[in-house]
Design a protein around this nucleic acid. Sequence first.
RNA 1: GAUCCCGUAGCUCAGCUGGCAGAGCAUCUGACUUUUAAUCAGAGGGUCGCAGGUUCGAGCCCUGCCGGGAUCACCA
Length: 525
Amino acid sequence: MSEAQRSEQELRRLEELEAIESRGVNAYPYAWEVSHHSTDVLAEFDDSVHQPSDDEDGGTPLRVSMAGRVMTKRVMGKASFFHFQDAAGRIQAYVKRDDLPEGFYNEVFKKLLDIGDIVGIEGFAFRTRTGEISIHVERLELLAKAIRPLPIEKETEGRVFNEVSDKEFRYRQRYVDLILHDRVREVFVQRARIISSMRSFLDKRGYIEVETPVLQPLYGGASARPFTTHHNALDSTLYLRIADELYLKRLIVGGFEGVYEIAKDFRNEGLSRFHNPEFTMMELYVAYKDYRWMMDLVEEMVASIVVELHGQTDIQVGEQTISFARPWKRIPIFDAIESETGKQLRGLDRDALAAAADSLGIEVDGSMGSGKIIDEIFGECVEPKLIQPTFITDYPIELSPLAKKHRSEAGLVERFEAICNGKELCNAFSELNDPRDQRRRLEDQTRLRAGGDDEAMPIDEDYIRALEYGMPPTAGLGMGIDRLTMLLTNQQSIRDVILFPLLKPEADDPVDDEADPVGDTTAED
RNA sequence: GAUCCCGUAGCUCAGCUGGCAGAGCAUCUGACUUUUAAUCAGAGGGUCGCAGGUUCGAGCCCUGCCGGGAUCACCA
């Protein structure tokens, strides 16, 4: 940024920075010894022990050394208060002219220190006349000067004034959003807890966390359009993975009996409240198990995460109270549809299904097969009504090219989704391990592809080769971490659980579609 | 991709029927040694998203574009 574009306030702060440096002070020093965080002081402070009193012997001071950001500043002549924020929270600090080195208060604290600056303070805790535990500052040092002014929000009795509401600002400058909004930081702390709780649940059971390729010569494991890229040295097209599934199952072939991965997948599709092009997925594969066993595991895992996060199995999500207490309901998809619509779709042919959909007010076009119509009816009529966590089981085979045929129900596969608050929470099946059946199913996908379905899966010959070496019976699970986090932290948009959600580039960004410094012109179709 | 809404000072917003660009907070100057949306007195700060059009005159009306939001469509 050229200095001409700087705002009045930024220019003034740059001048202050020079004034600070001209005093021989480094405005960006190297470290600060931290003895307490704000919440430590609030917890440790004991009036009967630490509160200083007027007589000489009164009180044993609670001495502290802290670091954080100046968030408010109230100057009252020869004394001032400011609020000070660190990673743990906020605490008030008090400075008195006569407790600081000669001239420091008037020339440095009052003139050169701004809201937003990061400071180190040393002093002792006390309780003010109005009852707030505060730090009486005896030494103050600038740790980092803020050039840009922080938006100032003010709050009293739970009411917030001048709250930054511009979502674009909050997402683009998430660092500012995090400085200003404890509740935003809290969501991401909870997200981290969800993931670490999940990881420790899986680790305790002996499953191995692995890393499989993000850059893949062929994508698969889900129905979605991929991002495409190019490796220059090999001069080959690569795709960013849309799922981990096929690589993880190769590891089951290789002899691991339980593997999981928590990682980003990438799907080249639209953005919405529930969709970000890169998102985090947990996938788990366990040998010698089936989908019924996996339902038990999902219940147990999610319930344990919820309890670890909230201390109980019941949580408030929007208007709803949701109970993750086990067991969850298990309903075959056809029964769920029947109980919601009164229509039994089991065994109907495509035309009868289309007629049923039509009578429910659901549009059907010629390209939709039986499975798609059933899925459409379920998604429209049933899914939004499933608030409490529920396993929907036994899906039509057409929608599930990687799931094993149902052991007793023709035309279905051993698959389930957990639905909660009207949204899918996970997807799992008894994995298809018959290489002959797998080849046929992928060939069906190829026909869909030829018919114009650009989300149908391509055939991965190496994956079939792996299956031909023998994959044990296996249960597999995929769980969207972002949506799980939305549910467990009561957030309405996926952008509120992703630190840096995808946005269009800012106008100033150097975007140039023509630019390709390494010359990618050999990649012709 | 469709529809609707939004874009004005660092932040939150007002701006009437088209007629001098406004407020609070923040900032600056001054006062104030336990305040807490601190208070009191004064001051500075604007590419009204961008481009074009209509008009004597546009923040306001029209067109296009850019950015954002919501809903729908798409999305296992």
